[in-house]
Design a protein around this nucleic acid. Structure first.
Lengths: 226, 226
DNA sequence: GTCTATACAGTGATAGAC
DNA sequence: GTCTATCACTGTATAGAC
């Protein structure tokens, strides 16, 4: 590990893969696992503390409240997700200017679906669903903090690919695009059951193979006149 | 009130617009309002009972649990929603065989967005978000009970309009379509903020004017070869 | 600073009186 | 049928040990 990485680790509380030592890190690790597995209200502060092997009062001490702990878990996931998105977008731009529409879509979608299907972040997107209905004030704050900048960057990239699309339509269509990603990541049960297992949204590759042409066609079509 | 109406009320517990008399109806009415306003966990059993003017133990007595009460509220909304969808679909079929793709889409989408934007059902779709993250077992059951039949009917209608689309692709694209509707109804904050208010998904007409051409183009495009 | 022990008000649910 | 009293449990706050 370089000196620079070591400093980053110390200041940023990012224990990578080592055994966590303080209650702070142990709680974060347990919360990541349990929130993903059982949702926010599905796990109590006392269970979190027990799983982390620490006293239950420490979640209030270290994170202010149970919500504070959730916010921190959420923030860390978004950090990874957005970093990956921007890396892939830069790659797409490096290949051609303007980038291919399909490449921009993939840069935005792949990290969202893979983080959702991976081991550690398996049910990460479910946390958004939890919050969206429930603590909608907290959710608005978290979404704004973690996604506003990244979303604006992708809307710009889309407009770059679609120079004839009015800005207002770009907003609408970006919104619809978010809906398809969100629903694919958060609610895979539905379509799996309806199709008798023929469509499985937790298969990221299959989902993207179906989703990207669909979105590209919708994005390219001329908007209604009126 | 006619004799027939009185019998219907007694058997069906559908008080229409009259003052509810029993605790059962009073609770349903209060729950519809309060769940929509504050979400599921945002309102306690004691608050529900107080708003209905009945003892708090009666929600367990009449509905088994707080979840049971929610299920009943949910079921009643879905009943209206699906009835309206099928009425509009029949209308579209009456105009042309096969029906126009755009007319089928409108029959499916309009009731979902209007029920979401109306007075009584303003935050109805938020309830789905609540459940989807949280009580995912209950949600799966409710969705299956209330939407499986209606969804299958609309997938059939889509395939009627798109005879060249493989059935598996139809499932995928119906799934994506659901995502755009769901996200538009449940999460209007996001796009409103990003667009500085220029796009407002709670304006059903504007949302449909943007959404239907987008979906129609995506649905019509030939799927990826592979 | 970090942590333990404990207390508090509020939750959904339930047994049993009337 | 209706309601009271009560239960086990929740998230949070705090006093005080180390």
């Amino acid at each position: 590990m370089s000196v620079r990485e070591a400093i980053a680790r110390r200041t940023r509380a990012e224990p990578a893969h080592v055994q966590p030592e303080g209650a702070h890190d142990k709680l974060l690790q347990a919360a990541e696992r349990l929130f993903a597995a059982h949702g926010y209200n599905g796990v109590s502060v006392r269970e979190l503390a027990a799983a982390a092997g620490v006293n239950s009062a420490l979640v209030a001490y270290h994170f202010g409240s149970k919500e504070g702990l959730l916010s921190e878990v959420y923030r860390r996931h978004c950090e990874k997700l957005n970093g990956e998105r921007q890396r892939l977008l830069a790659e797409a731009r490096a290949k051609s200017r303007p980038p291919r529409l399909e490449a921009v879509l993939e840069a935005f979608i792949r990290p969202a679906l893979e983080v959702a299907g991976g081991d550690e972040g398996e049910s990460f997107t479910r946390l958004r669903a939890v919050l969206s209905g429930e603590n909608s004030d907290l959710l608005d704050k978290l979404v704004a903090e973690n996604f506003d900048r990244s979303s604006a960057l992708f809307i710009d990239a889309l407009c770059e690919c679609l120079p004839h699309l009015p800005r207002e339509q770009a907003y609408w269509r970006f919104h619809f695009l978010l809906g398809t990603i969100y629903y694919t990541a958060a609610g895979p049960h539905r379509i799996r059951a309806l199709s008798n297992g023929r469509c499985d949204p937790s298969d990221s590759e299959a989902a993207m193979r179906a989703l990207i042409p669909f979105l590209a066609a919708g994005l390219k079509t001329p908007p209604a006149k009126d």
